Simulated scan of single mutants.
Amino acid sequence: MEITGRIVKDASTFKVKENREVVNFSIAVNDSYRPKGSTETKKIVTYIDCSYWMSAGLAQWLKKGTLVQLFGRIGMNVYIGNDAQAHGALTFHTSNIKILVFAQADSSTPAPAPKKQQVSDDPDDLPF
C-alpha cells in the first residue's frame, strides 16, 4: 500500500529492546470531494500514525512539513482501556520511505550567507 502526506511533527525514536528502535511519526493526508448536488468542494484532512523499524537514523530527516511517500501495510492495535472498553488504533507500518520535499529550514535560524568570490578585472591578476 502507498500513501503520501506531510509530517505533522518531528519524528521520535524509541528504544524497544536492546538492539531494536522504532521511529514514530504522523502524517496528514489532504483530500477533497464534492457532495452530491453541491458545487462547493469540501476539503478533509486525515491524520495517520506511522512506525518505521528499519533504521532509526532516518528520524533526523523526518521533520515537520516534510512531504513523504510511504510504502507499507496497515496494522491495528487493540487494547482494553481503563474504562474496561475495547479501543483500537490504526498504524501504518512503513517498510519504505521516499522523501519528496524536505521541510523548510526554521526561519528563526538564519541561513549562512554564501561565500562571495572576488572577481578581478585586471588581466595580470589571473592565476595562470
Rank of each mutant, 00 (worst) to 15 (best):
S26A: 12
T4M: 14
T66V: 12
L67F: 09
F25R: 01
E40W: 00
R20E: 15
P114Y: 07
K15M: 08
E18H: 06
K116S: 04
A28D: 10
A28K: 07
T66P: 02
K116N: 06
G65V: 13
P112K: 05
A86M: 02
N77K: 05
K98S: 06
L58C: 02
Q104C: 05
L100G: 09
V101H: 14
D125M: 01
V101N: 08
H87E: 09
D125H: 00
K98W: 04
P127T: 03
I48Q: 11
F102K: 15
K115C: 00
T39D: 10
G72Y: 09
F71R: 11
S120N: 06
Q104W: 01
H87F: 10
G57T: 09
D83P: 03
P114E: 06
R34F: 03
Q60A: 11
V22L: 01
Y79F: 08
I44R: 00
C50W: 08
K98T: 13
S32K: 02
V68T: 03
K63E: 10
Y33V: 10
D125L: 01
A59C: 11
A103P: 06
S38D: 06
V16T: 15
Y33L: 01
G88Q: 10
V22K: 05
A84Q: 12
K43H: 11
P110V: 01
T4R: 13
S107H: 10
V23W: 08
I99M: 10
F102M: 09
S55D: 15
G88K: 03
G75S: 14
T39M: 15
K42F: 02
I80R: 12
S12F: 03
N19Y: 11
A113D: 05
N19P: 01
T13M: 10
W61M: 10
K64P: 13
A113V: 13
W61V: 07
K98A: 03
V23A: 08
A105Y: 10
I44T: 11
R20A: 08
